[in-house]
Structures are given as structure tokens and as C-alpha cells.
Amino acid sequence: MATTLKDAVARKPVLATIRLIVPAGAARPAPPVGPALGFYRLNLMAFCKDFNARTQKYKAETPMQVTLTAYKDSTFEFVVKSPSVSWFLKKAAGIETASGRPGHTVVSSLSLRHVYEIAKLKQSDPYCKHMSLEALCKSIIGTANSMGIEIVKDL
């Protein structure tokens, strides 16, 4: 879709793009949210209220990824994404932390079916909608390898 001159003029100048990981329904004006937003003079309480309202349906303490765009007129917009692939892999494998020496130490193993199910979940993300399931699966396998989680055809 071509951007018209009218749209370009109307577009607000961006001050910063902030990426945060906030637990679902538990945004408070305390670290890490407070300092990150306070630095750009953004309304903390408005963000917390809006974020908590949007993430009501999710389980408590699920680490949601937030991409917040701050504008120069102290307004902001944000997109809530699902937790990171590494979080899903850790949960599925039943481990607390990944391997300290990936490639040497195997912490756990998962099957390709687990990978496919995680890929289906990640495809609902706004930034992954254009990606095919195959590409997502390849990406997840790469993440698992870097965490010391072995991917096998069958458990």
C-alpha cells in the first residue's frame, strides 16, 4: 500500500521504541516498567492500566513481550506479543534454566511435534503472521540448539 503525502505529514514523529518483558496483568510503575517509561516522560499509570486490561485473559506471571512506540508529544502506542520461544521451550522441556554450554551439555530433549505446536502458537503473533510454519519451525529448532535442548524426531 503506497503511503500518501497526507499520511506522511499526519504521522507523528517517533521519539523512541522501547521493548519490555512484563508479566501478564501485573504491570506496575516499578522497575523495569517505571524507569524505562519515565525516561521518556510517558504516562506510567495509563500504560499499566491499558496493559493489564489487555492481558486479563492470560495466566498471571506469563512474561509478555511489549513493543512500545513513544512519540514526541508524550503519547505512545504498544503491541503485546506472546512470550519468547525460549520461555515456551523451557516450559515444554520442564527446565528452569538453559544449558551453560550449548553444544556440549544437553539439558533436555523435545520432539518435532513440540516444535510444531509452539510454532502454531507463535504464528498468532503480529510480527510472525507473514512467516510460514516451516520457517518458524526452523527458527525454533535453532533456538533450541542454542539453549542446549536436543530436538529429536520422537521422544
Binding site: 495466566k59 506469563t62 512470550p83 523451557k90 516450559k91 515444554a92 522441556a93 527446565i95 523435545l110
Partner: peptide, 20 residues
């Protein structure tokens, strides 16, 4: 780092996949 989930449980369910 020792896995908490058993192999039997892992081979039937994707734990943590439902975040709702």
C-alpha cells in the same frame, strides 16, 4: 537444570503452551 517433567508426560502434552 535437571528436567522436572517425566518422559511419559512430555510425550503426550506440550506443557506451558496454553497461556490463556
Amino acid at each position: 537444570k535437571t528436567p522436572v517433567l517425566s518422559k511419559e508426560l512430555k510425550s503426550t502434552t506440550v506443557f506451558g503452551a496454553n497461556i490463556l
